[in-house]
């Protein structure tokens, strides 16, 4: 499992503001990239631009050497994105939510994943009854259920308790060790991980 994502000369403009100018970096297997910057510096926008749903003014993006600037499907099939809102349907149960995202996961794997995020007792609970942190942990459980080579985690530690933070850090570590790559934005200090930092300056 090897992966190489190259971002070349990205220019992103939002609401007449330049979020990044001529930004280049690359993410390879085993690498953790942390996008840093102040609030509103455009960290989330950069991830969205990489995933192709906000337009870039200029730039080139390559996945394993292939130009995917105009069609990101290759990248999309090989990644998991977790944004600020976890994408959890409140009327469905925890199990049903995970089944929607990971239809091929086995029952055992599902329970295993819920155990990892400390939700094993909640599998039949409607997501509406969960707290914000618990919802986020449901979304994070997807990381245990699917093998994708690149993760894009936008502020994944928000609303997580200490146990959750530790579990997520360990999972990120194991993803890196198995040859995956992780792009992350966070304001929290990372205790056990040593990321490569991409700084967004206004």
């Amino acid at each position: 499992m090897s992966v190489n994502l190259q971002i070349n000369n990205f220019w992103i403009e939002r609401n007449e503001r330049q979020l990044c100018r001529d930004l280049s970096f690359s993410v390879s297997d085993g690498e953790l990239v942390r996008i840093a910057g102040d609030n509103g510096a455009g960290k989330s926008s950069l991830i969205k631009a990489i995933l192709g749903w906000i337009p870039i003014e200029e730039g080139l993006i390559r996945l394993n050497g292939e130009d995917i600037t105009h069609n990101r499907d290759l990248l999309l099939f090989d990644q998991i994105y977790l944004g600020h809102t976890p994408g959890i349907k409140s009327i469905l149960s925890v199990n049903e939510n995970l089944r929607m995202y990971c239809p091929n996961a086995s029952e055992v794997a599902l329970n295993e994943a819920l155990q990892q995020v400390n939700l094993e007792l909640f599998d039949d609970t409607p997501a509406a009854q969960l707290s914000a942190g618990q919802k986020r942990r449901v979304a994070l459980a997807r990381l245990w259920l699917t093998k994708k080579r690149i993760w894009f985690l936008d502020e994944p530690f928000t609303a997580l308790d200490a146990h959750g933070v530790a579990a997520l850090e360990a999972k990120i570590q194991s993803q890196l060790e198995s040859g995956g790559a992780v792009v992350i934005t966070t304001h929290q200090p990372l205790y056990h991980l040593s990321p490569k930092t991409v700084e967004l300056t206004p």
Binding site: G87, K89, S90
Partner: peptide
């Protein structure tokens, strides 16, 4: 509306 608020739309967009 709900898909927009709970982040599902983002997941549709990035699902490939």
């Amino acid at each position: 509306k709900e898909d927009f608020n709970d982040g599902s739309l983002e997941q549709w967009l990035t699902s490939g």
